[in-house]
Design a protein around this nucleic acid. Sequence first.
DNA 1: CGATTTTTGTTAACCTGGTTGACGGAATGC
DNA 2: GCATTCCGTCAACCAGGTTAACAAAAATCG
Lengths: 139, 139
Amino acid sequence: MAVADGLRPTLLRLGRELRREKIAGVSPQQVGLLVSIKYAPGMTVGALAADERVSTAAMSKRISRLERDGLVERTPSEKDRRCVGLTLTDEGQRVLRRVRSRRTAWLATRLDALSPADRAALAAAVEPLTRLLPEEEGR
Amino acid sequence: MAVADGLRPTLLRLGRELRREKIAGVSPQQVGLLVSIKYAPGMTVGALAADERVSTAAMSKRISRLERDGLVERTPSEKDRRCVGLTLTDEGQRVLRRVRSRRTAWLATRLDALSPADRAALAAAVEPLTRLLPEEEGR
DNA sequence: CGATTTTTGTTAACCTGGTTGACGGAATGC
DNA sequence: GCATTCCGTCAACCAGGTTAACAAAAATCG
């Protein structure tokens, strides 16, 4: 299918480009995690891993890095002491707030350079794109 | 800008998803390289690196892996012996041919699951998406 | 010409982020 | 009470990125 052929390389390239730009010393992926934790404090490692469709081991490592940087905190759960609940530290909140404004800088700039028609086409494509993702909790 | 906010996480997730699926033991990135080399045999490491907007060191490593797997060959250039020209091996050609049909399998399947309207929206977005990429040689 | 500078690619050391497999400890199920 | 299952971590590994140092070839300058 022609659409897939055109879409694939572009998505790969864009993904790499986006992954590259870190803001305030935090990678986009880490920012995504911070957002998730912010809106669901106390979330477990496993849940986050499922959300991102990644192994728990991988998620554990990502969390460890965030913890090392003082952005999140692991607090053993009361009811099930196998689980650890994740929460943002004050620093984490600060970083998130600071990053919010700049996080889309690169992309926004590129979008601004497009014609209105192109922008409209992209806006219309956002929804379908999310539907390409493996479902499992429509976040 | 709302578009950027919606687009970013989706592009990141899709990029990861696409990067994940390797076909015939070759990653999508590697396939991309193979394609580039196929259509411009004799290409140098530096040129490829510029193309993919990556350091020459990174590209050198990627090439080394492909060489290790017997898919490409480095042949020192005649005219400028600092450069190495890259060409596909027979095995590389075979792999590429074999992969061609399957390379968009995952994405094509997901696309098939969408409504015609969604598919149309995505088709219309392909061009604008490529325009988001840092230019420098329109691919 | 010869000395210096620039270019090209490789290597080393380091980081992120992914995998699988082993394992300890907590919750569950007889 | 004991076996099992589930959760998170750790270790070992891999791909792919970065920067910095380097060798060798090419280009430039005096």
